[in-house]
């Protein structure tokens, strides 16, 4: 009952907390050409754990902004304009905060929960694994 597979269907969060689950979901998203959404989600978690005193943190914030938020990709297109502006202003003013990507991460997570996660649970990739 509490097998990894049972947990995968419980929630997106449970799926992403499992190594095999996260890997398989990424394979699925790559095929759907939206793996960036998952990479961004993990990048937000990694960023939140970074030490703000570390000089790397500003560079990582800039890299996340450039690669996912500003770019016309799957993440940039799904974020609300106000959310993108908020992050852009933070990066420009070098006002780095552990929670600066939280809202954006929530928006992408909701989008994955409503779309990709549901499709994944019905995909051949998932069913073959099961």
């Amino acid at each position: 009952p509490d097998s990894p597979l049972a947990r995968w269907t419980k929630s997106l969060h449970s799926l992403l907390g499992d190594q095999d689950g996260a890997r398989l979901f990424r394979v699925f998203l790559e095929r759907e050409r939206c793996a960036d959404a998952l990479d961004f989600w993990f990048a937000c978690n990694g960023f939140r754990q970074m030490d703000l005193k570390d000089g790397k943190t500003l560079r990582v914030a800039k890299a996340i902004y450039k690669r996912y938020v500003e770019a016309d990709g799957v993440v940039g297109r799904r974020l609300k304009p106000a959310t993108k502006t908020f992050i852009r202003d933070n990066v420009k003013r070098q006002q780095i905060d552990s929670a600066m990507f939280d809202q954006a991460q929530t928006e992408i997570q909701t989008s994955m929960e409503e779309n990709a996660y549901q499709t994944f649970l019905q995909s051949d990739i998932y069913l073959e694994y099961v």
Binding site: P4, D18, A43, G46, F47, A63, I64
Partner: peptide, 20 residues
Amino acid sequence: IDSEDDLLQECISSAMPKKK
């Protein structure tokens, strides 16, 4: 100095689940 891509990859990897 690490490249931007390396930093980003390191950040993503640090958040990936490690064990089953």
